[in-house]
Nucleic acid binder design. Sequence first.
DNA 1: CCCTGATTCGC
DNA 2: GCGAATCAGG
Length: 197
Amino acid sequence: MEWTEEIIAQLKALWAEGLSTAEIGRRLSITKNAVVGKAHRLGLPPRPSPIRRNAKPKTTEKTEAASTPATAQTAIPSQPAKQAEATPAVAAEKPQAPTSARVTTPVAPAAPTAEEKPVKKEKPAASSKSKPKASLRSISDPEPQKRRGPSCCWPIGDPGTPGFHFCGATPIPGKPYCEEHAQIAYVRLRDRRDNVA
DNA sequence: CCCTGATTCGC
DNA sequence: GCGAATCAGG
């Protein structure tokens, strides 16, 4: 695995979006382990983890853990709350679908906090097989570019850095993504590439 | 069982 | 540094 700046940026971005490690892995076409491992190595802020490894084979435990005056510097000091009320992706819906409805992963992602900046730099995150289904738009509103209606909120780039933007394509009615990205976003939880490879 | 994320450890 | 294996909680 070659962790280029770009990949890392995406990892950070998606991580910051609050996506699950597996989800990030899916998007980057890597395993969740890789995601977690790299994220941990990068020192990314840990996100709500279901567990907490307590067992620490420390020979000399409890050194001065008792008294901790004001030195409690709990990691990640520099986080300028860029995405203030950022909508935690998973908050919109149950992160884990009930056993009966494990069809898709409702990963809602991009925090629609900031308006997309008119960036020039664009990177073709996806292929060019997208079809211009302009015809499906309402006849009374034939120009999506003029209206501020819904747009695909698939994140592209690292939020906070110049060049970051959302897909912006016309989303599928009822979905936050365009057809292209919706296919990636709503993945079957069962047969995705991650299990025991 | 499914999901999740964290840590460990061989490479 | 990397990530699969493993662990562990919901």
